[in-house]
Design a protein around this nucleic acid. Structure first.
Lengths: 244, 244
DNA sequence: GAAATAGTGTCTGTAAGACATTATATT
DNA sequence: AATATAATGTCTTACAGACACTATTTC
């Protein structure tokens, strides 16, 4: 086939460049449920998907953002005030049709933040920002753009990784106890986990550091733990339930 | 903090948009080694990284490409002639400095293609395209842009997933034998794998379909197999070597 | 029959899953 | 003392890893 010389967007400024956005799927555990942060789209007539719920995000600002991760961190800090969450790239979605305004590509990150870190409602304008249980999404899950698909992919990634990593530890404020950690696993996975095996796995993985007993509980106090390394999760050699 | 109203790139056309590219990391097994396809950058004075080796890729063409995956498929078919490989999104890299021409973001895919599918050298202009063993990269691995980092990430992803998936099957032409598949695993992982356990794992996973004995070998012929589903790999419940 | 490769059998150690039991706190 | 939760112990089973063995082809 003839290898057509692709015109460069640099040579021809009017050559259409896709626009570039970053979106963040922010998970937390609140009220015994896995929840996600959504924003309501503005109502203007020019706006795409007016009034619909969407993932927090927006255009990359080439003047502000050094790189994609910094852009994601900026948007996350703006909405939640949390500045050092677990942040992982999920992937990117780009097509001619996902945004009615034209060809667009979004780079998606997903973040895990402790529920206890959110004492006050996020941001200055709290009205258009809200937490939703992942099983109780607004508009029957029909979010703006392709954000429904993206959220679905984020959930699959999270639940998949939780089977064999220490990810749920990033959903808890330190220090946390092993029962609390187990509960976080059970909430994300949506099924009970055996206590004995759970404890052996967590302690033998060596990613927890003892931090003294936690008082204030109702009955016998449990040992508190911190993460030895808050930057990355630990990978276990096996999944939780090999087969049904 | 004051939530500055971000100017929209749509309202102001002169607002700088990052430019958008797609790159593909194409792996195959040739000459008993894991190899990757690289292209040599053109030599023009205006060109970034002239003469350096780079991953195949380039600008998204909003007129040609329906979405990112289609763009990756177009670039892959153009370089290799292979049109239905295993293709998975690896991630995206975007920053102000990765391309000297300005803020850019690239969406990276990685592909696995059978070595036997490449009877002739790829493309029309074969001079600037070549296969390299991943342990024998040109320029000591100092590729154009951040492609060295990207290739490293692709290798980690591939080797990581090979520990617990059937991915190496996509590096072989059908029908293939179990000894061939085992060899593909050993080449990618860089270590020997026990035959007995390997066979049990592969056959019990149920993703292989018998396709008659393969002759032409030197000694006893082996059973040939095809993939039941060429679209996605199978995930095993455990990794190959739990721990050292 | 020798040699080389394909394929199977056997043993063992480790660890997960299930469940029972003990330990330590509050009221 | 009763109770609730934290933490540990025991038993069984499944399976990976190691390695020996058998099977089937070519020369």
């Amino acid at each position: 086939m003839a290898q057509k010389k692709t015109p460069s967007p640099l040579d021809a400024p009017e050559f259409a460049r896709p626009f570039t956005t970053v979106d963040v799927v922010i998970f937390t555990v609140r009220q015994q449920a896995l929840q996600v942060l959504l924003m309501q789209r503005p109502d203007g007539a020019q706006e795409p998907f007016p009034g619909r719920w969407a993932l927090p995000g927006g255009f990359v600002d080439v003047a502000l953002d050094e790189d994609l991760q910094a852009c994601a961190r900026r948007k996350l800090a703006g909405k939640t005030g949390v500045d050092s969450p677990y942040l992982e790239q999920l992937g990117s979605w780009g097509s001619a049709r996902r945004d009615p305004r034209g060809w667009s590509a979004t780079h998606v990150y997903f973040a895990l933040i402790p529920g206890q870190a959110l004492t006050l409602e996020p941001g200055g304008n709290a009205a258009d920002v809200a937490w939703f249980g992942v099983d109780a999404l607004p508009d029957e899950g029909r979010l703006a753009f392709d954000h429904g698909d993206i959220l679905q992919a984020a959930l699959e990634r999270l639940r998949g990784k939780v089977e064999y990593t220490s990810l749920p530890a990033f959903l808890l404020a330190e220090p946390f106890t092993l029962p609390q950690l187990q509960q976080a696993y059970e909430i994300v996975l949506g099924r009970p986990v055996d206590k004995s095996g759970f404890r052996t796995r967590m302690l033998s993985a060596g990613f927890l550091v003892e931090a003294g007993h936690v008082e204030g509980g109702t009955r016998r106090p449990a040992m508190g733990y911190r993460l030895a390394d808050r930057r990355a999760p630990v990978v276990f050699p096996r999944t939780f339930s090999p087969r049904d």
